[in-house]
């Protein structure tokens, strides 16, 4: 029998070790798997490479993972936001590496990683410093640069509903990177608000088929990152 449900966030991240590459879903707080990230903070894994669009805000979620120096390298498109001080401090003092990637290239590198495509050519960033040192080739008279797929050991994703097969639906713009990250990690770990019985989710409406998901954790009442930041909460 297939049952991907895991009883806690702690159990779901228990095998994420030092040096792992971890994709973390979310665009700002929308879709950020806060409870799974906090479980990873508790787990204590170091030297992580994190693939995520942003670098967190305040001192919760991704920012709480970065703050104690657990993250060696960030691969992201937009490492600053209104309430983001943790990443800038570490970056300016040379204690965290940054691979800056245009957002669409980041998404496509992840998609390619999940789809078995090792690299692809894109017109994005041609003629800019982010194209420096990259192979280029002209197609139909236009220059493109070669970008490589990204894969990860783990993905931490937040969805809305799941069944025991790992089929997922999402909530509004909290979908963002979730579906592609689930495809691109050896082990995709998803926190969901509710668990459905197999068959309850309309197969026409499933966004991520369960084959892309390895673990599902039920977090019925996830915390809201912006509220924690407003209240000045620092995790742990």
């Amino acid at each position: 029998m297939i049952d991907k449900r895991v009883e806690s966030c702690a159990a779901a991240v228990a095998d994420i070790s030092h040096g792992a590459t971890v994709m973390i879903g979310g665009f700002g707080e929308a879709g950020s798997p806060l409870e799974l990230i906090h479980a990873l903070v508790d787990r204590g894994a170091r030297d992580l490479t994190i693939v995520s669009n942003n670098t967190g805000s305040g001192r919760v979620g991704l920012a709480a993972l970065i703050a104690p120096g657990r993250v060696a390298k960030m691969i992201c498109s937009y490492p600053r936001s209104a309430n983001s001080t943790v990443f800038p401090e570490l970056y300016r003092s040379g204690r965290i590496a940054l691979e800056l990637v245009p957002q669409g290239t980041l998404a496509e590198r992840i998609r390619a990683g999940g789809a078995g495509i090792p690299a692809f050519y894109t017109p994005s960033a041609v003629g800019t410093i982010l194209a420096d040192g990259k192979e280029s080739r002209v197609f139909d008279g236009r220059e493109h640069i070669l970008e490589h797929a990204i894969r990860a050991d783990f993905a931490l994703v937040r969805a809305d509903r799941a069944d025991r097969y790992g089929n997922l639906t999402y909530s509004k713009t909290a979908r963002n990177f979730g579906p592609i990250m689930c495809t691109a990690a050896d082990c995709s770990i998803v926190q969901v608000r509710s668990i459905s019985e197999p068959g309850e989710m309309d197969a026409e409406c499933v966004i991520t088929p369960g084959i892309f998901v390895q673990r599902v954790v039920h977090v019925a009442n996830p915390q809201q990152e912006s509220r924690l930041v407003r209240e000045g909460v620092a995790y742990p």
């Binding site: 498109s77 600053r80 940054l98 994005s124």
Partner: peptide
């Protein structure tokens, strides 16, 4: 802090 987002795409 360099931050590019989706502008180049």
């Amino acid at each position: 802090i360099p931050a590019v987002g989706g502008a180049m795409d």
